[in-house]
Amino acid sequence: MSFFQKYFGGWTFRSTKPSFEPGDEIDVFVAETNGTDAGLAYVGDTKLRVEGAGPETVEKRVRVRVIEFDETDATGNGEFLEIVGESSYTS
């Protein structure tokens, strides 16, 4: 085994467009909301609409259950489950 094989063994590159399966539960930050009942979260270039994520979830880390996902467009819908953390900007 060469030095490079040893050094880079196990390395993988993350996609800028991760995909999800219906039923997956993931933690994301809600970037914005439509003001009432849905938020928008970005995971790299993947966009998730989060049903039930109102204004109180913006800039919070939330747990979401993926309902549907289109891998071709890197978009999907999920349902808000709970707030699991505060903003990364809070001091």
Rank of each mutant, 00 (worst) to 15 (best):
S2K: 12
S2M: 10
F3Q: 13
F4N: 14
K6C: 06
K6M: 12
Y7C: 13
F8C: 09
T12L: 07
S15N: 10
T16M: 01
P18D: 01
S19H: 11
F20T: 03
E21V: 13
E21S: 15
P22A: 10
D24Q: 07
V28R: 04
V28F: 05
V30S: 02
V30E: 02
N34K: 08
G35A: 06
G35M: 07
Y42A: 06
Y42T: 03
V43G: 00
G44Q: 05
D45C: 02
K47Q: 11
L48H: 05
V50E: 02
G52S: 09
G52P: 09
K60D: 00
K60I: 00
R61A: 02
V64R: 02
V64K: 02
V66P: 04
I67P: 00
F69T: 01
F69N: 02
T72L: 09
T72Y: 05
G76S: 09
G76L: 06
G78L: 05
E79W: 04
E79D: 11
E79R: 14
F80G: 08
F80W: 08
L81N: 07
I83A: 02
V84S: 02
V84A: 03
E86R: 01
E86N: 10
S87G: 13
S87W: 09
S88G: 11
Y89M: 15
Y89W: 15
S91A: 15
